[in-house]
Structures are given as structure tokens and as C-alpha cells.
């Protein structure tokens, strides 16, 4: 995909996006609603025409091809199953439209039913299926013609949490088994992190960062990415010393912190540093450089979120794993010290 742009009137839905999606990759477009990710997907499918730019598939432009001429299939958000057909007819629809003969279609449909674990459900009407089953039929229907690329438009958003988690694993398995390139659109950062080989974070029609889940979580490119992916703490400060890829940052509350320094940033002046809540540690001694008051303690089962407020008034969240060794979270209202281990903080581009 090269320099693609899409305008609706004066509104730039997709603004000069260039992406390179590798074959056999699980690629995710992640962003809040209205960021242009679905528009981008619809341009790949052929439902929208780019205002400018090119979309290449195997180095060939597919701009002139209509949706029914592209070897790309879509799993729609609401599944869009044909209500007047059975499960098998739905799955076989693509192949039938491609002019395959019945004796070619039947075994593929059987194989697809096996793949999505719906053996024996072929003759059932799709309207009688549960949400999760409809989801599987939609997947099977899109996979049956063996497209080069499978586009998935927030396919899990209508499912409940349990089902969504099992479908995440299922999708990953399907992608590995079929070897088809998956392009997955979601606004759910957890979904993106668990399934993707690579993620493109989008906002306001632009791609802000492309990278693996680990890259994006641990080295967010800017403030938006850091805030959108997972919970995080932003701390204001000033660079006092920059040495190579590490900077000493003096926080407003007075403490000095060593933070990783991405390339291409100014080596002095006011900056924001980012620290993930699970990397902060609550220290027993109140004389630590970073002091805070406990405001709220929220128990989450596997861990506890401690909401604190620093001396300068900025809020901080610390996530503590719940262990059975007697380390209890601090009481509300008490004053505690905070420590930031080396190498977990990062200077952000604003």
C-alpha cells in the first residue's frame, strides 16, 4: 500500500498512509473509532476508491479491480451472513460465484466446517446459530475461496468476553493453518496485542507507529500510542543530562530518573517520560526521591491497582501483582515512596 489517501468532502479519512504488509502475516490496524482504519480496510477490499495513491497486491496495482475481482475476502463486523441460506450454502457461496462445480465445492465446504469446528452443522439455517457460531461461519465463508488476503473488520466486537478470548486464539490458529495474510481491524488494544505479528496504530487518518506488539507496548513512538496501548503514567520533567540513548530527567517533583532516549529527539528542555504501571514499585521507605499519597486501591484479582498522587499533584498508577506472601497493598491515605527501576522509563515525543 503506497501513500494512500482518502477524502470525504473536506474530511481526510485516510491521510497519506503507506503500509507494507508481508505475506502470511497477521497484521492489525489499531485505533480509536473514526481513525480511518475501516476506511483503509474498505479500500483494500475495493468498496472505496482511494482519492489518490496506489494499493498493490503482489507488486501489482489492484486499483482498477472491483471487489468481486480481487482475491481478497472480508469478514464483516456484523458477519453479514446470507439469512436465506444454510451454513453450507453460505460457505460455498464464493466458490459457486467463481463458477466451481458442485463436486469441487462440497469437499471444500466440509474442510472449512472442520477448520472452524462446526462439523455437521452444514445443513442448519444460519439464523438459528449463536453469535459465536455465526462468527465461525463468516470466517469459513471468507476463507473458503482461499483468498490471498483476509480482511477482518472488528469481527469480535459483538461477542462476549469469554467467547472473544477463545476466538482470538482460534483466529491465530486459523491464520497459521491456512497461511493466508490476515489484516485485522480493531479498536481493542488487548485484541491487537494478543494476536498480531505486527500492529499499525492509527489516529486521525494517519499511521503513528508500526511494529510488533512488544515494540509498541514497550517503546511507544509518541504520547498517543503510549496512552492508547495499555495503561500508562506520564510524568513531566526536564532533561538534565543526555548521554547516548539514556537521559537523566529531573521530574517536577524533584526526583531524577534515568529514561531511554529514542533517536531524533532534542537532548535538552522539557519532556514527558512514560512509565508503565507494572514497572513502578512502591518502596517501604518514605524518604525515597519520589513520594506519593495513596488515593484509591482497586483489587483486580490477579493484581491490584494503586492510584497515587505525587507531591506536584500529578496522578500515578502502580500495578502490583497479588501474591500470597503477605505483601499487602498500602492503605488509603498513607504516604509511600515510589521507585522507578533503571531502563523502564522512556522519553516521549510529544
Amino acid at each position: 500500500m503506497l501513500n494512500v489517501k482518502k477524502e470525504f468532502g473536506h474530511f481526510q479519512a485516510v491521510d497519506h498512509v503507506t503500509l507494507n504488509i508481508e505475506p502470511n502475516e497477521f497484521f492489525t490496524l489499531l485505533g480509536p473509532s473514526g481513525c480511518g482504519k475501516t476506511t483503509l480496510l474498505r479500500m483494500m477490499a475495493g468498496f472505496e476508491t482511494p482519492t489518490s495513491g496506489e494499493i498493490l497486491l503482489d507488486k501489482r496495482s489492484i486499483a482498477g479491480l472491483l471487489p468481486n475481482g480481487r482475491p481478497i475476502n472480508t469478514v464483516f463486523q456484523n458477519y453479514a451472513l446470507f439469512p436465506h441460506m444454510t451454513v453450507a450454502e453460505n460457505i460455498g457461496f464464493g466458490l459457486k460465484m467463481l463458477g466451481r462445480r458442485r463436486n469441487e465445492i462440497v469437499p471444500v465446504v466440509e474442510e472449512m466446517l472442520r477448520l472452524v469446528r462446526l462439523e455437521g452443522a452444514g445443513e442448519r439455517p444460519v439464523t438459528k446459530l449463536s453469535g459465536g457460531q455465526q462468527q465461525r461461519v463468516a470466517l469459513a465463508r471468507a476463507l473458503a475461496p482461499r483468498p490471498k488476503v483476509l480482511l477482518l473488520d472488528e469481527p469480535l466486537s459483538a461477542l462476549d468476553l469469554k467467547l472473544r478470548q477463545s476466538m482470538q486464539i482460534e483466529l491465530k490458529r486459523l491464520q497459521a493453518e491456512t497461511g493466508i495474510t490476515f489484516v485485522f481491524v480493531t479498536h481493542d488494544q488487548e485484541e491487537a496485542l494478543t494476536m498480531s505479528d505486527r500492529i499499525a496504530v492509527m489516529s486521525k487518518g494517519r499511521v503513528l507507529q508500526v511494529g510488533s506488539a512488544r515494540d509498541i507496548y514497550e517503546h511507544p513512538a509518541d504520547r498517543f500510542v503510549a496512552g492508547f496501548i495499555g495503561e500508562t503514567n506520564f510524568l513531566e520533567g526536564t532533561i538534565v543530562e543526555a548521554k547516548g540513548r539514556v537521559a537523566r530527567v529531573r521530574l517536577k517533583s524533584g526526583a531524577d530518573v534515568a529514561a531511554a532516549m529514542p533517536e531524533g529527539l532534542p537532548t535538552s528542555g522539557d519532556v514527558t517520560i512514560v512509565v508503565r504501571p507494572e514497572h513502578l514499585q512502591i518502596a517501604a521507605d518514605k524518604d525515597a526521591a519520589l513520594c506519593a499519597t495513596v488515593e484509591t486501591v482497586v483489587y483486580f484479582g490477579t493484581d491490584t491497582h494503586v492510584h497515587l498522587r505525587l507531591k506536584d499533584g500529578s496522578p500515578v498508577i502502580v500495578r502490583q501483582q497479588n501474591r500470597r506472601d503477605g505483601t499487602a497493598p498500602p492503605d488509603v491515605g498513607t504516604e509511600v515512596g515510589l521507585s522507578i527501576p533503571d531502563g523502564v522509563a522512556q522519553v516521549l515525543k510529544d
Binding site: N68, T74, F93
Partner: peptide, 27 residues
Amino acid sequence: LDFRLVEASYDLYASRFQVLTRIIIPL
């Protein structure tokens, strides 16, 4: 009629005529 179904059939290689005869008219 849910026109997303029309889109879905178009995505699954149906020609315009097939979209009409297999999706729109039956529904």
C-alpha cells in the same frame, strides 16, 4: 434489506447480476 449483504456477496466474487438474483431478489 441489509445492504451489507449485497457488499458481502460482491466481496465473494458475485457479479452484479448474481447479486441481484441470488441475494436481493430472494431477500
